[in-house]
Amino acid sequence: MSLLQIKHVSHRYGNQRFLSRQPEQTVLQDVSLTLEAGTCLGLLGRSGAGKSTLGRILLGLERPKEGQVLFEGQDIYQNLSSRQDIQVVFQDSFAAVNPKLTAGQIIAEPLTNFLRLTPDALEERLITLLEQVGLAEADLTKYPHQFSGGQLQRICIARAIATNPKLIILDEAVSSLDMVNKAMILDLLRELKATLGLAYVFITHDVQAAQTLSDRFVILDHGQLVGDYPTLESFTEATDRHVEAIRQAVLATHPRYRTIRK
């Protein structure tokens, strides 16, 4: 059985104002996908293609107008225990944490929600988690503003793995980091995937980042699944117009190959 099955999911954002005549806007149309445990799905597409909406649906934050999402065979809207197994890391780490809480309190939140740990066990778990994401015990008492963007993203990752989830939604989780931090966070994510057997849905428009982490690639365009590539090779060798459009948008890595300036 697949870890995650998305079956014919359609979603619309409606304008529900009184007497409003604006039509509803379709953001997802008949999307079907499966994801196996321990693998990473790269979900690519332009801004506004519906990537984040799909992520929100998988998290149970948004209920699709049509279709079904099954996690380990059970509907995520009926079986609320899947909430513990599906976690998320967002793009903007500063917006994703409460500025009044310390790093320790931030990471402890899902633990106190889902598990009953004694104070000692909790403390021990927090320290292990921090070490897993490359931070130290001393960071437990620091506040978000005392961290850099890369470090705070590590805190968010520690929070996401705290409850031993099986799936993490990475919604542009490395997009606003500089190149050095991006490389380090991608390394960390790869390592956690291997050691914890995590599955990821990696939502991004950054195709290079997607390629370093993903086993399989799909492209969303205007709410529809327009491409599905089961391996890195099939993705890099594909020549359809959607992959071409992505390839066209990739910038040169060396001034020799540049195309904007001749």
Binding site: M179, K182, A183, V207, Q211, T212, L232, R247, V250, Y257
Partner: peptide
């Protein structure tokens, strides 16, 4: 680091 990340697409 730039080379490592950019590998593949071009």
């Amino acid at each position: 680091q730039h080379g490592l990340q950019a590998g593949g697409m071009n």
